[in-house]
Amino acid sequence: MVDVPRELVQYVSRLLAAERRTRGTRTGARALTCFRQALMVLVWFRKGEDVALLGAGFGISRATAYRYLAEGITVLTTQAEDLHTALRRVADDGWSHVILDGKLFDCDRLTETTLSVKGETIDAWYSGKHRDFGANIQAVARPDGLPIWTSPAMPGHLHDLTCAQTLGVTAALNWAATELDLPTLADSGYEGAGQGIKTPVKQNTDGSRLAPDNRFYNRLLRSLRWQGERGFAILIGRWRTLRHTTASPRRIGDIVTAALHLTVNIQVVREE
């Protein structure tokens, strides 16, 4: 039993069936039907079960379970919109702005190293800010908190602004502000991100109090941004596997994107 709508299982099943037709898979050649494979994928997302134990529960080997799971993630990821399309849709729906936020998704420790800005050898996937290993994921959300797009995974040692610039997120948001009249609200970690990306005014270095207009601006920004920053909480609260993954951290971006697509489809099912 898994507490997701049956319509969602059927939707994922149809995606898997289309994938099998594309690959030319013969009828009866797979250990699981499309429906049961979809169910296995959703159990993993919803409960974060160990893949080997999950495979045993469905009567398949560990290797087959990993292969079926990877296939399920892939078919879901390919359904996701690119950022420009998602921004156009938000503007067409009449929303006034979007929210930009980043999060470190927890993963196991890796041996991959890189050089810091000071030239020192550091763990590529270790975040000094969070004091944990993980992948940095950027997300753009509607004002009501529902994410519309999530990014590929970036090494955890990188800051949010660096990730957003490297992935072209800031450039897309600058375009949206100019062409779609769709500004972006973000926290102070994105200061200097460019036109249309609104960040708080930082405190004075001498410790003096901000001017009244700057304090009011920050208060207004917080009041508009807080709900949009629920986006990651919506995903993690619904899909337990996002709380910690033993998969390659470079795959975390695909896993989060797949989880977002599932979340959006649950919203559609409920509205219908």
Score class of each variant (00 low, 15 high):
130 H>Y: 14
165 Q>V: 07
145 G>Q: 02
118 K>V: 06
206 D>W: 06
14 R>H: 11
270 R>V: 08
200 P>V: 03
92 D>M: 07
151 S>Q: 10
123 D>Y: 13
53 L>G: 07
163 C>F: 10
70 A>K: 13
58 F>I: 05
106 D>M: 14
158 L>I: 12
38 A>F: 04
268 V>W: 14
167 L>E: 11
265 N>Q: 15
144 D>Q: 01
232 F>K: 08
44 W>L: 08
214 N>D: 15
254 D>K: 14
201 V>G: 01
49 E>P: 00
235 L>D: 11
40 M>Y: 01
18 A>Q: 12
227 Q>M: 12
95 W>H: 15
234 I>N: 13
200 P>N: 02
42 L>W: 05
236 I>G: 09
152 P>I: 05
211 A>N: 06
29 A>C: 08
162 T>Q: 11
29 A>Y: 03
264 V>W: 13
170 T>C: 12
84 H>I: 03
141 A>P: 02
9 V>P: 01
101 D>E: 13
127 S>H: 09
124 A>P: 03
219 R>A: 15
169 V>E: 12
175 W>R: 05
196 G>F: 00
56 A>P: 00
85 T>D: 08
51 V>S: 08
161 L>T: 06
88 R>H: 07
265 N>R: 15
195 Q>M: 05
201 V>R: 12
80 A>F: 04
198 K>P: 00
130 H>A: 15
24 G>N: 00
179 E>Y: 09
32 L>N: 03
172 A>K: 04
211 A>Q: 09
187 D>C: 05
183 P>A: 01
236 I>F: 11
82 D>M: 03
134 G>I: 07
26 R>W: 04
77 T>C: 12
88 R>E: 14
137 I>K: 10
155 P>Q: 04
118 K>M: 10
68 Y>H: 00
155 P>G: 08
256 V>P: 09
96 S>R: 10
37 Q>A: 06
68 Y>F: 11
214 N>Y: 03
181 D>Q: 10
195 Q>D: 11
203 Q>M: 04
175 W>L: 02
63 A>E: 15
67 R>P: 00
84 H>D: 08
92 D>P: 00
8 L>M: 02
26 R>I: 01
186 A>M: 10
258 A>G: 03
267 Q>G: 08
